[in-house]
Amino acid sequence: MARSNKPILWLPFAGGGLVAALIIPVLIVITGILVPLGVVRLPYDKMTAFAHNPLGKLILFGTVALPAWHAAHRLRMTAHDLGLGDGAAVKALCYGAAGILIVVAAAMLVAI
């Protein structure tokens, strides 16, 4: 047995869990209830202004990247619980999917 390098996966997972817990529900309330009801409008100009702001970019990135990583790691562990093992395929699928989301998010935020 040797010391594992799991912390590099686990710390962002833990951080993502906290970020997800604090911010995801209110975001879904906005995009899933308030916008459809017309109570809140998310106008293009306002959104791009927020995304132009460096702090805005950082917030948007953190909001997407950390929960995505949290989900990836947790789904990888759950796959093992469900008898799908802990092989390269599971890891590639989970962390790969999160990686794609994170890279695309970063690219979009750089572009906006």
């Binding site: 995801i24 975001l27 879904i28 995009t31 929960p67 989301l101 695309v104 998010a105 979009m108 935020l109």
Partner: peptide, 14 residues
């Protein structure tokens, strides 16, 4: 995770 996908699609559309 699914909602994160939705958010990334949103950034893409933005």
């Amino acid at each position: 995770g699914l909602y994160c996908v939705l958010l990334v699609v949103g950034l893409f559309r933005l």
